[in-house]
């Protein structure tokens, strides 16, 4: 009688044995009680493992993990990293940002000083904050234009904007935080022809906003009214 190895027996049970091997295993099984017990034990082991791991498969993704993943999606969509690299590499860029609007330099400086810091406050950036607080979509003040408005998964209002002075067009996404200040969720160069951006670091804003619900007109009106009438 052919000796059936442990490997082959498992392969048979797992449906991984070839035709000839299958026949050999079945022949051996018909003659060998010990082998039948081995097979039975292996099947019971697989059942036990299935049973033990089944709950996690059907469980909803825990909130902590879901939030972390959403945050990661936002960070991934925030090519601020690539912009930061450019800012470090190329001194002309902060100057261009500064030229684009008063808040620009502040933005650039904040990004350079706090790489990876998620609490990039825009409160100190009055021109941008004013635009975020008061403009309807598609309206502009100076170099700042509001492009679209959304509600993120935490039901916060987020607004996509562009800053453009013809030298370094930038697009960003700011979300209105619980503490009553705007936070920069993402910032990216809006792909100027001369810019070198490593593959995979453009289009992040599109990915980010695609996850969000567009803000209905009446909700935007209510939000703007609340910002206008705030004490």
């Amino acid at each position: 009688m052919t000796k059936i190895s442990d490997e082959l027996l498992a392969a048979y049970a797992d449906g991984e044995a070839g035709m000839a091997d299958r026949a050999a295993v079945e022949r051996a099984l018909s003659q060998d009680a010990r082998l039948r017990r081995d097979l039975e034990r292996y099947r019971r082991l697989r059942q036990e493992i299935d049973r033990s791991f089944a709950p996690v498969l059907s469980a909803p993704t825990p909130t902590r993990l879901r939030k972390a993943i959403e945050a990661a999606a936002e960070r991934a969509a925030a090519p601020a990293a690539s912009l930061r690299r450019r800012l470090k590499r190329d001194c002309f860029i902060p100057a261009a940002l500064a030229a684009s609007f008063a808040a620009g330099l502040f933005l650039g400086v904040a990004l350079m000083r706090a790489p990876g810091d998620d609490s990039r406050l825009l409160a100190a950036s009055p021109a941008l904050a004013a635009a975020l607080d008061s403009l309807h979509d598609a309206e502009a003040i100076g170099a700042v234009r509001i492009l679209a408005s959304y509600r993120n998964s935490e039901l916060r209002v987020c607004r996509r904007f562009s800053v453009s002075d013809g030298r370094l067009p930038v697009e960003g996404l700011a979300c209105f935080a619980e503490d009553g200040a705007w936070r920069l969720a993402a910032l990216e160069a809006s792909a100027p022809a001369d810019a070198y951006l490593p593959a995979g670091e453009t289009g992040g804003l599109d990915r980010l906003t695609a996850l969000m619900r567009p803000l209905p007109q009446d909700e935007l009106e209510a939000f703007l009214a609340a910002r206008r009438d705030r004490p």
Partner: peptide, 17 residues
């Protein structure tokens, strides 16, 4: 879940690749 989070974060960073 820490591992899942780290993996998803890395995956999202490299999604374009």
């Amino acid at each position: 879940d820490d591992l899942v989070q780290a993996a998803v974060e890395r995956a999202l960073r490299r999604l374009d690749g």
